[in-house]
Design a protein around this nucleic acid. Sequence first.
DNA 1: TGAGTCGGCTAATACTCGCTAGCCATCGGA
DNA 2: TCCGATGGCTAGCGAGTATTAGCCGACTCA
Lengths: 188, 188
Amino acid sequence: MTTREAIRDAALRCFAARGYEATTMADIGAAVGIRGPSLYKHVASKQELLAELMVRTMNGLITRHREALAGTADPVERLRRAVDAHVRFHARHRVEAFVGASEMRSLVDPHRTTVLGMRAEYEKLFRGLVEDGVAAGRFDVGSVRLASYAILDLGMGLATWYREEGELSENEVVWQQVDFALRLVGAE
Amino acid sequence: MTTREAIRDAALRCFAARGYEATTMADIGAAVGIRGPSLYKHVASKQELLAELMVRTMNGLITRHREALAGTADPVERLRRAVDAHVRFHARHRVEAFVGASEMRSLVDPHRTTVLGMRAEYEKLFRGLVEDGVAAGRFDVGSVRLASYAILDLGMGLATWYREEGELSENEVVWQQVDFALRLVGAE
DNA sequence: TGAGTCGGCTAATACTCGCTAGCCATCGGA
DNA sequence: TCCGATGGCTAGCGAGTATTAGCCGACTCA
């Protein structure tokens, strides 16, 4: 692991634990064993660290989504796979997801606009999946928008309460949430 | 409205918009038309403001929950009413809910322990409702814990995306989410 | 009228933080 | 062996922060 990667990881943990504003460059430095000012040999600024973390997280999420859907046409199966990827990503990257959700406020332009755009795009992808299912007569929902928000919220909630060491395995949580999502849209 | 109430409201709006750490006492003062130091004639500290906001929010949530359940024995109807109260509270107090969810990190003891306890209590109430429904054979869920987290997350998500001026009325959103929750636990 | 309280103000205290400057040890390659 | 790059370090700048001290006008009430 390069020093730069170690710094990114340390920043992620600090931002998650204390928040972006409350985290000092000295904190991040201490987490990788160097002094605060030495960080500037590797990164341009604290803000750049946050931006990189958030863009990476959204990229990862969207990439997993695309991979999960590749080559599947059935609306129910597509939603199943999308929710699986969504929930699994939030289970495996809960710290990233937590920072992504809670530190939007601290992200300033131009990266702010970029990340907001990526989030909007991701939401639209889910809305499309629900719409397709409704159009095919496989789902039954009152509001497509509310249903897709609900599904997204299900997964994002993991960032708060999921723990790897918990009593439920990753697969148990993922499959259970996939089931919730399919029930929610009244699949079949 | 007393000055103290105006200050609490202003602090709430500032914390929601900029976050606790990024909000200065001067910001809060400006929002009520006085200077930062003058706030200390009405409140003890910035931390006390945050604590009061968070405790009030949790108190409100738990109170609405109790009121909603009073005098109802049927498990399905109890969950329906609890989710209605939960979602309605998050719709009507989305700013409070947003701060409550995102500023836990900035809350320090002793208030931190108090609020965490209240949250745990609230979660337990929902877990109990789901358990009762399962015990009565009215619900069908793989994991009581996951189902109650899912229901709670549904409502908390509103804090992020709900807007009073949106195309959907409060009742439409609430009823839709109640329906989602009941589907989720496989009611009937 | 005069004492006391209320609630504003400015000035100042005692930090803290992001970031820059500039120094120096180490080390790979010519 | 020397040279330049790399990546640490300390010192310090400039800006900003919560909070306190202490002043003063306005209002209440005896």
